[in-house]
């Protein structure tokens, strides 16, 4: 696609290997000096404390410190991977994330596109302002509201269901394990659609209006312009967000699930994050929690590189 710069930008001025490299460094001193502070920052604030990860392989004793705590090898990893609940929490985590990827990921994009097509400027601004309000409502409160709406005894939804004879009995939404995943993903979409759209709205704002004008002259309707002008223009942003969404497939929101969890849906609602919180962090088993976190990070890193590779092959868009 036109936006891939990789191909277009062939190697700069050639020369003999050695001197060429040296002059290249010299000539881009200004450019390098922009990046180095960032690297220095990460070395100090991220790499220096990273020795803390060692406790994943140790039985961390606060008294002895990170370095002097006894080694535990892979026992914490083994504990997690051989846990009888492991398959269950993995399944739940993947199921909710895949669902979120298929339903939750496109939602803010569609919202941003539709918002962009609104003709009334005031209405547009109004909608945009309103849409990100739920982001500021904590999950405890938001989850509580969802539970109230879905309540079998006095929830609005069940009142409607019974009145309209969709079902004779009210449905216990939160007690039905089959519905949990979809309710969870739906709630997340509702809460995050406006906030998630901000980045796409920014991308759309950068689209050259001339492209739209040209398309209009060519006889493209609103929908066609959206499809053939706007979407390709923000594809780079979409792909980057998608790559990161794929790489974080083992992460689930934590608070929201804890709010919606109950003993009847625990079989489908327990995720890696909530489980490790309960049996690790809450018990202050730092080594175990760190080990699971590390394992998750490794998977995420692999997925990131994988998604990046696939994206480069398929769409010519990539992170690196």
């Amino acid at each position: 696609m036109e936006r891939t710069l990789e191909a277009r930008h062939s190697a700069p001025a050639s020369g003999t290997e050695g001197s060429g490299r040296r002059s290249r460094w010299k000539s881009q001193f200004a450019l390098q000096s922009m990046v180095w502070p960032g690297l220095l920052f990460l070395i100090v604030f991220s790499y220096v404390p990273m020795y803390g990860i060692l406790i994943a392989f140790k039985n961390f004793d606060l008294f002895l410190g990170v370095m002097d705590s006894p080694w535990a090898g892979f026992s914490h990893f083994r504990e997690f991977l051989t846990d009888p609940n492991f398959m269950n929490v993995l399944r739940n985590t993947l199921a909710m994330n895949l669902l979120a990827l298929f339903l939750g990921f496109p939602a803010p994009i569609l919202f941003a596109l539709l918002l962009n097509e609104l003709t009334g400027v005031r209405f547009k601004r109004f909608v945009q302002t309103i849409s990100y309000l739920p982001h500021f409502v904590s999950w405890v409160i938001f989850g509580g509201l969802i539970l109230t709406v879905l309540s079998p005894s006095n929830g609005i939804l069940n009142l409607l269901i019974v009145k309209l004879h969709i079902s004779d009995e009210p449905i216990n939404f939160m007690g039905n394990p089959d519905l949990f995943w979809i309710i969870m993903v739906g709630a997340e979409m509702l809460k995050g659609i406006g906030w998630g759209a901000i980045i796409y709205i920014a991308a759309i704002s950068g689209v050259d209006p001339e492209l739209h004008e040209a398309a209009t002259i060519d006889g493209a309707g609103r929908f066609q312009r959206m499809r053939y002008v706007t979407v390709p223009s923000i594809m780079g942003t979409i792909v980057i967000m998608l790559i990161f969404a794929v790489s974080s497939i083992l992460n689930t929101g934590f608070e929201q699930i804890m709010v919606m969890q109950n003993p009847l849906n625990l079989d489908v609602s327990e995720t890696i994050d909530t489980y490790v919180y309960k049996v690790g962090l809450q018990q202050m088993r730092y080594s175990y929690s760190t080990a699971v976190g590390l394992a998750k990070s490794l998977v995420a890193l692999v997925l990131l590189f994988g998604a990046n590779y696939v994206s480069r092959k398929l769409t010519n868009n990539s992170l690196f």
């Binding site: 504990e79 003993p263 327990e270 049996v279 018990q283 088993r285 730092y286």
Partner: peptide, 22 residues
């Protein structure tokens, strides 16, 4: 006590019991 393996087992069993009680 927190930080112990027994603490982890206890938490796992508690989770299991929550489900089974219901």
């Amino acid at each position: 006590l927190g930080g112990t393996e027994e603490g982890g087992i206890n938490a796992k069993i508690e989770e299991q019991r929550k489900k089974q009680r219901a």
